[in-house]
Design a protein around this nucleic acid. Structure first.
Lengths: 235, 235
DNA sequence: GTAGGACCTCCCGTGGCGTGAGGTTCAAGC
DNA sequence: GCTTGAACCTCACGCCACGGGAGGTCCTAC
């Protein structure tokens, strides 16, 4: 029995009949012989080739890569090296995702998960990767409680400012100017005083008012930012 | 401007117009409004949803997973945990592939790459993962030179046995019996004397004679194994 | 009023097969 | 020799997350 039927070969190799059909279709592993009625007969050479294909596939190569790897044996080493580089990159990406997920799961309540994600997502459109790394490391350096404290101060600040707005206090009022100074100081704690990051935040703000408003809990287009801008001018 | 055109939203979010079309088609992020002529108008709520989708996608979730994640916020945590588990598994697989590739690239000449792979592949059909780990750690413990020395002894043994076969020496001849004892001893060095591994090897042998023959460099069906089996019976 | 960019829908293509449908052939038991 | 059920054959559509193009309409700025 030196010829294999497709079913026996499928069992022996652990692949499916459909997969062998597919390899035959695309000419990757073709049954060298056929019975008169058209049934595939795999020769030992075909079987050898199939096992080579299977092992290369198990290393994560695409069928096209497998094909060219088998076409000339001297192309194996560069292909392997490329594959190793690709796998290394993939490993890094997977690790990055994993750490983000673990951080999210560890540090947040269920309700805050989505809004946190949304903020991250929005921000990533406007900050460069380096800037984000910066922001994150700063947040990490401060520690989670400090970050929470900052957020609380922020909300308190916003509350007072809106109260002044509602009261009709002019933006040039010393109390408002003082609040705007605190606003900027708080912002600097987040941005590290980096002008580029502040500019990116400003740009993000200008272009995303509407969509950001909901997630931070107060209407974004009620003129608060403009009010602070005016007050800042009077500093 | 509280409504976004699809092009502007694409630019702002970093996605393509086609992607937004796709999300609209499958009902994941639908533009709540249309102009009279049919152009999509995204409301702030739509934009918010899009950013949520984008952030969940960046964590590696499928569109279906994103959909169910957004349907009920309490499903976020389990979904994240599942995703984390999947990513962990993926990271392990990628690492396993990477180490296999590095080992291959470090330890083998170009010509031996393919046949090594093929043998690995064939063996993996017949050994369990644990048994393979066993085999590999034993090979690692012996060190590469020792493994090469074993292979050389093996080839020498085979050479002598085939000579005896060609000469017509009966399998019960003491010299042949001694050689069969060495054969088993060598095998034990590989298998660690594990009966299950030896049985798996035997099964692999029985079912793969033809395909194995080429890679180990001598015809597999010339009766050598049967000859040794007879000799072993006379031990 | 006209150019050209933005938008619309429809539809085929990707990779690596899974999963039938509908028909032929093989192998084992009577 | 005959029957049956398993194995095999060839289409051919489906998946996932869109990419890309055709062919047509609409909007906006000059």
């Amino acid at each position: 029995m030196t010829r294999w039927s497709i079913g026996d070969l499928a069992k022996a190799s652990g692949l499916t009949v459909r997969t062998l059909h597919h390899y035959d279709e695309i000419g990757l592993v073709v049954a060298s012989e056929r019975t008169t009625s058209g049934h595939r007969r795999y020769t030992p050479d075909d079987v050898r080739r199939l096992y080579q294909v299977r092992s290369l596939r198990q290393l994560g190569l695409s069928l096209d890569e497998v094909r060219s790897a088998l076409s000339r044996s001297d192309s194996l080493r560069p292909i392997f090296q490329a594959q190793l580089a690709a796998l290394t990159a993939q490993a890094q990406q997977v690790e990055a995702l994993r750490s983000r997920l673990t951080a999210l799961l560890d540090g947040h309540t269920t309700e805050s998960l989505l809004s946190t994600l949304e903020m991250m997502s929005v921000h990533e459109s406007y900050f460069t990767a380096d800037q984000l790394t910066d922001l994150r490391s700063r947040a990490a350096a401060l520690g989670p409680e400090a970050v929470e404290a900052l957020k609380a101060s922020w909300l308190e600040l916003v509350k007072q400012l809106r109260q002044h707005m509602a009261d009709g206090t002019p933006a040039t009022d010393p109390r408002v100017v003082e609040l705007s100074r605190q606003w900027d100081a708080l912002g600097a704690r987040f941005t590290g005083g980096d002008a580029a990051i502040q500019a990116a935040a400003q740009r993000s703000w200008d272009e995303n008012k509407a969509s950001i408003s909901a997630q931070i809990g107060w209407p974004a287009d009620d003129g608060l930012v403009d009010y602070v801008t005016q007050a800042r001018a009077a500093q």
